[in-house]
Design a protein around this nucleic acid. Structure first.
Lengths: 104, 104
DNA sequence: ACTATTATTCCATAATTATCGAATTAAGCC
DNA sequence: GGCTTAATTCGATAATTATGGAATAATAGT
């Protein structure tokens, strides 16, 4: 996972509305939720929600599947786990590396 | 930790330049780095870097300490751990909760 | 084909973010 | 005070993001 892609995912989650959408989908679990249900829960106009969902989808954090006229959205767990893994690697790795290169 | 604050932190990390700055600081460890050293490593103009650093500081992800004329910046580990904890809670909690609100 | 439902895309606008040179502030030294 | 180094703030501009009404597309039922 490269820095650019990670930054894009963080940016996608770094908006209160999108974070709420994402949280809503996580809570819904594998069943996912129709867009209209997300809209009820989050309370934003349809077009605005659609834009936000798109952002989550292109960054790979959410997937969609059509069922008739309704679109089911789901949180993409492997994606968030990859993101968490990247950040965890960052924050917990070689903290003792000094500027002169010598380990403690 | 509320959603707004978390979103702000994610947004702060959700920019390639800032993410690189943050990664640089993580690698530098507890010694931290002077702003000028970060600038050398990341390669952006001083004023641009200063704005990015400010963003990381106000969201609590980075701290600074003055040593004479130089400012030492450090990654704030508790902050990133709090953020990771929040996201981990999200992505692994009550996946079975259905749209009718009843837990499994 | 017509209608209803669901959701997206079009379009425009407001708001925020990113960028960076120049001027300024901060701290220390002579 | 004057000089140097370090970094921020000012100020202006470009670029991106967010928002949402209206129009359009997608699917299905009659």
């Amino acid at each position: 996972m490269n820095v650019e892609a990670v930054a894009k995912q963080l940016e996608a989650l770094g908006n209160a509305t999108r974070l709420q959408v994402y949280r809503t989908l996580v809570r819904a679990g594998q069943n996912g939720l129709p867009v209209s249900r997300i809209q009820e829960k989050v309370g934003v106009p349809a077009s605005t929600l659609s834009h936000h969902l798109h952002r989550l989808i292109v960054t790979g954090l959410v997937t969609q599947e059509r069922q008739g006229t309704t679109l089911i959205s789901r949180a993409n767990y492997p994606a968030i786990q990859g993101l968490l893994g990247f950040l965890a690697d960052e924050c917990c790795a070689d903290v003792d590396a000094e500027s002169d290169g010598s380990a403690a």
